[in-house]
Amino acid sequence: MSPAHTPVVTVVQLDAGVPLDRFADWLDGVETRTVHAYRGEPLTVDEVGDGLIVLGGQMSALDVDVPGIAATRTLLAEAVAAGVPTLGICLGAQLLAVAQGGRVHVAAPPGREAGVIEVHWRPEALTDALVGPLLDPGTPEERRTTPMPSMHADAVVDLPRGAVWLAHSRQYPYQAFRVGPSAWGLQFHPEASPATLHAWAQLHADVDTAAVDEAVQRHDRSIAAHGALLARTFAGVVRERTQDAVLV
């Protein structure tokens, strides 16, 4: 690998309606390639490249008969074992949890979490390589919150053994976690634009689309700023690992 190598991040898209969205413009200094798992496009860990992002979808992490689900669970387990920087978003986070021995509840009793939620960061988040840059250590713990888009009814109910719990919301406990040194699961959607969240809201009869739109409009400047920082920080983790591999 030469010093001029541009890191490649593979994006696994599990649902045609859940794209990389705004992250496409925020992943600085890396190239992305998308594998459309819902079309049955194959992928092995040897083909991932320097980083891995697994997006969300309308299906369940337990729907192993749905194209891409079982293969992506296997891929996530292999990526973690190989030390590939990995980010799972919503369904991607649930798949990461299951792949590492955690547990997901389909149609969890608290109900659908939709719109803009307050992500409450735990003390462990302060020193985390991905989410730590979002936080001011001088802010009291009860005020370490970030507004983020959300749209899910399934939820992680048991983290994998050894996972680091990073954040919760009022409705669901496991909004962010880390497995090993460089694999993260985010239940919320830092990549989602207002148009994308609007489209998702319209898919569900139990969601007030107008309320979702209003909340997004009110918070989108903060959402975009924090989403961009998350994406750029993840890209930085990928670049750092790539540089370390060059030195070795």
Rank of each mutant, 00 (worst) to 15 (best):
P137A: 01
P110G: 14
L130S: 07
I117C: 13
P149T: 02
H152I: 07
T146C: 13
W121R: 11
E118S: 15
A153D: 10
E118M: 14
R143G: 09
M148I: 12
E124K: 13
T146G: 00
A108E: 14
P133N: 09
P140C: 03
M148F: 10
D158C: 07
L130T: 10
P110C: 11
T145F: 02
P133H: 04
S150T: 13
P147K: 08
T139A: 04
W121I: 03
A114H: 12
A153V: 08
E124G: 02
M148N: 07
V157L: 06
P149I: 00
I117A: 15
D128L: 03
P140F: 01
A129N: 03
P149M: 02
S150M: 12
L135A: 04
R122P: 00
E124F: 04
R143L: 12
L135Y: 11
V131K: 06
G132H: 08
M148V: 13
A107D: 15
E124Q: 15
I117E: 15
T146K: 00
E118G: 15
I117W: 05
A125K: 08
A155P: 01
I117T: 15
L135F: 08
A153E: 14
D136C: 00
W121F: 15
R144Y: 04
V156K: 08
A107M: 13
D128V: 03
P123W: 03
R112G: 11
A114I: 12
P109D: 13
H152S: 01
R122L: 15
V119A: 14
G132N: 07
H120A: 13
A125G: 10
D154P: 05
P123G: 09
M148D: 00
A129T: 07
L134F: 02
P137E: 09
E124R: 13
T127F: 00
V131A: 05
L159A: 12
E118K: 12
V131C: 02
L135W: 06
S150Y: 04
R144M: 01
M148P: 11
P149E: 03
H120T: 12
V119H: 02
G115T: 11
L130G: 05
L159I: 10
P147F: 06
R144N: 07
M151G: 00
L159M: 06
P147E: 08
E118C: 06
L126S: 03
P137N: 05
G132D: 11
P147N: 04
P147S: 09
R143N: 09
A108F: 08
P140H: 04
I117L: 15
A153M: 05
T146V: 14
H152L: 07
P140I: 00
V131P: 00
H120D: 12
L134W: 13
